[in-house]
Design a protein around this nucleic acid. Structure first.
Lengths: 196, 196
DNA sequence: CCGCCTCCATACGCTAGCGTATAAATCAAA
DNA sequence: TTTGATTTATACGCTAGCGTATGGAGGCGG
């Protein structure tokens, strides 16, 4: 039987298919929305196999959280390495645009869903803290490379990420041209170098 | 009968008691957590009366949303009026500290819960957009009063609020002294006037 | 006093989803 | 092909919560 054919993304194993579909549900409706039976329906299987791969629903959520944490920690290191002869300012602008110009609504939806989830679950809050610490630790040196002292650079890094996530919480500016202009001005404030 | 004795905050009517308790549940666990029967248990009544005051669960949520929107729109006007001879910078610093120094964890929890709720419900998103527009419209003039041109002031206002909400999404800095120092540095960047 | 109106209690049926038990299907190897 | 290990289907009982129906307690006007 073509049992292993994952219907979503590249899911090598059936366990991965459960996890990937779990992330889809997480992105769409938050952690509360990750329910076994709807998941099974989306995978066109019954929940029979679920309890082979996972002890229970909490076990699935825990596996998803771990995968999310490890993925984010791994990926941030790659994102802050310069492309070719890119400057620190270039890296920062690229990062900002990656987070805000939404090439990846799924990733940001998961990010927001996890952060909401963290408000009700201490283990999740711990994972978020780990990811945040990794990101701040990777971004602060970029600000130091711009000539700022360590304390100031750390504050800038925090402002940088708070802005990125806060922007996703605010209602979007209606006029796209105005939004783009504001984003340029804000990037100039955050990154410091003369307006983009 | 002592029927009207509201057990929470100042709930004048029993309908208010349902709403207030609804906000408590919202703050604690998000919109998904606002359930009729647990609400009734907390109010030490049965759900019998609920369907007298509200058509159904959606009706309660809609009433809560309306109350939240109107309350936020009303209150922002008061918060931006100077206390005595307060300067625009003073107002901004007071606002920032009101949002970040958490004298009101309940209010911020509701704020975050509503914004999460808005990601899954267009009506909520509309209410959030209304509140955001009101806040930005009230705060931008403060930046203009600091001498910034309107476009720059609007961008600063947006950055201001994105930071406030983003800060509540990031894992808190562990060391309180470091957190306070960072907040001062960030306030200096946001509000512009020399640090401190 | 009586009937009415307001508000709440009680009891009911219904749905969604969790977790379990058990059988069935598939595959790999002997 | 038989055996054993994996993986999935099916069927079950259970809980939480929604919405409805109906009755009843208390206050109030007539």
């Amino acid at each position: 039987m073509a049992r292993g054919e994952g219907p979503l993304r590249e899911a090598k194993t059936q366990r991965d298919a459960w996890l990937e579909t779990g992330f889809a549900m997480l992105a769409e409706g938050g952690a509360e929305n990750v329910r076994i039976e709807p998941l099974a329906r989306r995978l066109s299987v019954t929940k029979g196999g679920f309890y082979w791969h996972f002890k229970d629903r909490a076990d699935l959520l825990a596996a998803m959280l771990e995968r999310w944490r490890d993925g984010r920690v791994t990926v941030i290191a790659r994102h802050v390495t310069p492309d070719g002869d890119e400057t620190a300012e270039g890296v920062l602008r690229r990062l900002l645009s990656r987070y805000l110009d939404q090439p990846n609504p799924r990733g940001m939806a998961i990010e927001m869903a996890v952060r909401d989830w963290a408000r009700h679950d201490a283990r999740v809050a711990e994972a978020v803290a780990t990811v945040d610490a990794a990101r701040l630790a990777h971004v602060a040196p970029l600000f130091e490379a711009l000539g700022l002292p360590p304390d100031e650079a750390a504050a800038r890094a925090r402002l940088f990420y708070a802005y990125v996530f806060g922007q996703n919480l605010l209602a979007p500016t209606v006029d796209p041209a105005e939004a783009a202009g504001q984003q340029d001005r804000i990037a100039a404030i955050l990154i410091g170098a003369g307006g983009g």
